[in-house]
Design a protein around this nucleic acid. Sequence first.
DNA 1: TAATCTGTGCAATTTAAACTTTACAAACTT
DNA 2: AAGTTTGTAAAGTTTAAATTGCACAGATTA
Lengths: 195, 195
Amino acid sequence: MESLSNDQLLEELQSAEDQITDRIADNMETFGVSSTVGRLLGIIYMNRESMTLDSLAEETGMSKTRMSQVMRQMLALNIAEKEFVKGSRKEHYNVESDYAQTFISLFTTNWKDVVSRNMTLERRLRERVEQMNNAVTDATPQEIVERIETLSNELDAWQAYYNWIDRLVDFFESGKIFDHVPIQDSHKEDNHHEK
Amino acid sequence: MESLSNDQLLEELQSAEDQITDRIADNMETFGVSSTVGRLLGIIYMNRESMTLDSLAEETGMSKTRMSQVMRQMLALNIAEKEFVKGSRKEHYNVESDYAQTFISLFTTNWKDVVSRNMTLERRLRERVEQMNNAVTDATPQEIVERIETLSNELDAWQAYYNWIDRLVDFFESGKIFDHVPIQDSHKEDNHHEK
DNA sequence: TAATCTGTGCAATTTAAACTTTACAAACTT
DNA sequence: AAGTTTGTAAAGTTTAAATTGCACAGATTA
């Protein structure tokens, strides 16, 4: 009982594709980035061809400046790249077409950043703890000595944690994660759930 | 050459502890939550004892209402819990003291949400694709048929991805991750880097 | 019952993030 | 050289998020 005209089909297609893009944009917020980052990712991805700032601006209805800002952010996040297109003066942007790879890029980029910031702080704090320890004498109140000790232990836990994250990032980046949580081909052998 | 008085030591301690709290708050933004969530986490954690809305408000200088809002969010994220304290009418909140466990809670809570939202959308879109396919006749332009096919493939990729995330969440939640990326005791055998 | 305490719904305000407009530099074209 | 095109810096505006103040409900105590 086919009831859809060609025009209706095209509309349906467009609507379905838009919904996918919207959802990609939405999900991206879980990574702590603006939904516009996700939206551009979705648009370029669904476009299946690299896009320029102008075409993105047109597609989103946003300003070119904003497109520029967002694409820069996406480059920094390693989820987009410039692509040279012969004969065109504009810059063309493309995105990783593998969902899981995009996940990994975002995950590792974000956490690498965190790890590096924290290692720096840890180092500085260790030095300060050492100085405090040097300042301790027999006359120093027990309470203070204990707090220094506690702080020092805290730094150990701190270090263990960020070291763990560091190795976790590597676990993802190296692809080892796929050995233990493989991507399953969704060529599901048609276990259709129609009753 | 100890040059610090007890008062100075106390100041140093406070300052160091504050910096740790600040950094915890900062890092929390990587999970896409407000930094105040991180700040409260840090404060309660460093306090090493459960805290009330009033003590949190005092510590942060923020309103009690906001404390209430944030704690509710933290409960939803599974990174804090109420703790009954005999003889006190107030509600006491505590946080997980294991960094890695907190990481896992946030990671899994966030992504479970995403997965569930997406599975719903995928199901709906599959139905629509099926309807589109039913509407296709010999007269339907090739271009449309191809786009439907592409969309259908897209849904397969989509499903494979969210299924992967689902298993990934489980990999973390079940603790299997620690079998492959163990937390290393930071009792580093003193490879002191003092030259 | 009245008085106090505690947490939170709700509207209002403040602050920060997202986004736009304008302007301009660099690269390219003619 | 003068004129385009392209991307982005800087400052301004808008929108959304974070935060507060007030008020009130439910629970507790007197």
